[in-house]
Design a protein around this nucleic acid. Sequence first.
DNA 1: TTAGTCTGATTATCAGACAATAGTTTCCGG
DNA 2: CCGGAAACTATTGTCTGATAATCAGACTAA
Lengths: 235, 235
Amino acid sequence: MSNSQARPPRLSTVVADQIQKELFDDHLQPGDRLPTEAELSERYQVSRSVVREAGRILDQRGLVDIRPGRGMIVAPPDGSRIVEQYEIMLGMNRASFAQLMETRLVIEVEIARLAAARRSGELVEAMRATIERAAAHPDDYTVCMDEDVRFHELMSQASGNPFFAFFIDPVNTCLRNSYTEVRGYLAAQPATLAEHREILDAIERGDADGARTAARNHLTRVVEQQATLVPKETD
Amino acid sequence: MSNSQARPPRLSTVVADQIQKELFDDHLQPGDRLPTEAELSERYQVSRSVVREAGRILDQRGLVDIRPGRGMIVAPPDGSRIVEQYEIMLGMNRASFAQLMETRLVIEVEIARLAAARRSGELVEAMRATIERAAAHPDDYTVCMDEDVRFHELMSQASGNPFFAFFIDPVNTCLRNSYTEVRGYLAAQPATLAEHREILDAIERGDADGARTAARNHLTRVVEQQATLVPKETD
DNA sequence: TTAGTCTGATTATCAGACAATAGTTTCCGG
DNA sequence: CCGGAAACTATTGTCTGATAATCAGACTAA
């Protein structure tokens, strides 16, 4: 029953896992310093190359920040690695685009519901500001896209549960990065802003069902528009 | 405006990004071979250590599989890296039990709905098997817990969208690790199994609303029971 | 054909050296 | 006493060369 693929793990991964474990067990905080390469090399009885490769692994996991002259320090939590992973998945398999969109739709509709149930004045204001800024620059793709993403980020915050932001923000960032149809996006801006307003209004009046419906309408429209813009792979 | 943090990037990351780019541009398929370390070292005019560290990075990104004697080959797409990243994020932020449970509830209720809409015979059979195995060992904590987890895993598969599993698997792992009340868990087994059956029946007859309701009932009950068992955080 | 062996290719690990960088200390002029 | 530049030290970044472990395929013998 034992996996026949069982190969001896590389020392670098063993050391990386060990360091990661100690990092968690010792409750190290972002900014805390870890031992130097020389010390780690001594402690684990491996060569410096192995320690260095372990460093690359931990860096890629987003756990540490390594700089010459300063050493290895614990990095602050950062969703960018998750975004990277999503982008890799999309790059390797285009079919997953639709699935990622579906995930977004399903979860974000519920986020809108929760945001309405727990409406927060500050965040509602910030969300409205994104709509206004976008409306003020209807021809600026970067501004509109940034405010669009920001709107959704603020909504996930407004859900009152930080884990929703963990899950959905990287997805949205990734989808945004893969969005290259500037013309089509800008043409749809009026619809986007009107739909954002609808969602926001529902949240503001604490209308959970209304927020769900509005969010579903918005995201469904986005999905369908995407489908018409990117109808098929031509390669 | 340029980031004052702009440091010269490590050669290993430059090379890793370069290899990744070529990998995508050339439409390499899983199983395809990449150049050897010596060739890459020659091509990019860097030392072999740099190429090796780039290899660790690409490996950690889930893009390649590297083995001695065989070389570097393109790895099949695999969501485990995303799950790993989410687990790291959950590990760094001290997760509140209630918030994790809420996340789980929201997402898994929708998973149940989709599973009903896209019911798959095989998976339904496998899910029923977990219930039967658990029912056959009502006093074995390990068996019951394993089958419980398996039931939920199969349901997320049955949703037809692998990304849901990316979200829910790390959450469930995290919750399971914090679940140590063996007695309470076993006492609730009859209720758990009955609820699993309800969910499954709804999925089997393609009743999306019924599946949602049943899943919500199940998870809500779990949440409430947990609340009575673990009233406060003592750490 | 088949099982075993051999061989060449490839990665894994080690050791040691020097360069580049960042934080710290020292020292000097005011 | 203070401020700032220079020197110093610690640390990571990169290179080179060597040896061990592993694997795929060719070859051989029954």
